[in-house]
Write a protein that binds this DNA or RNA. Sequence first.
DNA 1: CGTCGTTTTGACACGCTTCAAGAGTTGTGG
DNA 2: CCACAACTCTTGAAGCGTGTCAAAACGACG
Lengths: 255, 255
Amino acid sequence: MFQQSASDLQPFLNRLISRSVLTTEERQAALDLPTTAFEAVRNEDFVRLGERVDHACFIVAGLVGRFDQNSNGDRQITALHIPGDVPDLLSVVQPTPTSALQALSSTTLLQISHAALRKVAGNYPAVAEAFWRDCTVDGMVVAQWVVNLGRRNAIARIAHLLCEMAFRYQVDLTAAEVKFELGMTQDQVANATGLTPIHVNRSLKRLQEIGRKWRLGTVRIDDWQALQKAADFDPNYLQVDTEPDHRLRIALPAT
Amino acid sequence: MFQQSASDLQPFLNRLISRSVLTTEERQAALDLPTTAFEAVRNEDFVRLGERVDHACFIVAGLVGRFDQNSNGDRQITALHIPGDVPDLLSVVQPTPTSALQALSSTTLLQISHAALRKVAGNYPAVAEAFWRDCTVDGMVVAQWVVNLGRRNAIARIAHLLCEMAFRYQVDLTAAEVKFELGMTQDQVANATGLTPIHVNRSLKRLQEIGRKWRLGTVRIDDWQALQKAADFDPNYLQVDTEPDHRLRIALPAT
DNA sequence: CGTCGTTTTGACACGCTTCAAGAGTTGTGG
DNA sequence: CCACAACTCTTGAAGCGTGTCAAAACGACG
């Protein structure tokens, strides 16, 4: 653990300003947030259910799953988070988690203290609004997962997951061969889709018939159109290409 | 449509201060928000997918479902909202909805303009924080729904839904006979649990064997303990009895 | 070279869906 | 006040998607 230079948070800022409008001063304030580096090994819960936290985690590299569980201990992944995300930004206002956060692969994190986040949010209401907005987008994605589990069969669920992640990784979807590193095991995919690993395996094989390859966490998609159709995927809910809207700023000019 | 007296928003304020700490002045500011009454008839979408809105809706009476759908048009309820809720408070920062809002029964709403909400949030950062916190709690509930659909069978799903709603309606769970008005058809329950109405019907009958009655939207539970066990229900995620935490206020004393 | 986690395969059971039709219930107009 | 229409709820039979159990093949790694 050691202090990081502020520029490490640039991807975090990029995420914020892709959806919210911030002034130069506000951007700088976000970049200046003090951070502490932290490594989470694969399969480690670095945020545990019910254990109050005093910092949020920014993902520098790796893959993080948000886990909820039933009383049998069966775990269900309710969200996936990739580099650039702060999976528990909501902990600033809800410091006692109802979901655990687990590294699905080796993950590098930057911890940002709630105290610092609250200070920035207090000094710059537009930053607070950007935080709020990011949390709502997370919620919108989770709502789509409910649709995924409730109204799609195994093949479409898995395909939808692949489409969502390809989109969020911003891989080039016009390429003849769409390829990206997902880094999930079939078991983890099963946890995310509400299926058994066995059935994920069989479905994956049938998916290959419509143009998909899967090997060691590397996804290769030969026919993106076909996959998107099988997944019934409409990227709108991810709010990635949305133009940030000036008029929404809560922050009023100092009166 | 006509102007309401401010006190109509008292239940909204009560919801906010059950989770956040607000000063007298801040409370008053929330109560003073101007509203416009609006009636939604049963099965009416009063917020439509992709149609930008300029106000949020406070539920005075009735039941509201948040609907998402796949491209086949199969609809899935991703959240239920009861009197006291503002189901689209998030529209303040995300005015173009990715979910529709539909009245599941005749519903009375108060529209609160984004302009007014933004003004209050801008003037009183603690109120903005309370809004943010309420949105995150909504998201936590949706995450539990993912678990419900992903890791529970039909009976447990339905039982879980009943438990959640009983809890949110704050019915007396110590009573020998727990009873409340849910006002949903079996078809609507099917939309919320990712099941077919036929299977909901059959499951409901089996649920009665462990102490439940269901008639015309009125739920009567003879054995709450048994139901809660069948549902695998832990109310923690609803954040209803949580003590609001002073230390979390974003708003710093004016410096 | 052996171990451990992951992927793959097969056989079987069962939960849920689908399709079809009938019975209640509620509301409405003559 | 009755008759009819429109929902909602209920029931049955059959099919299929997914889960379960068991075990083998594969791949990565020390």
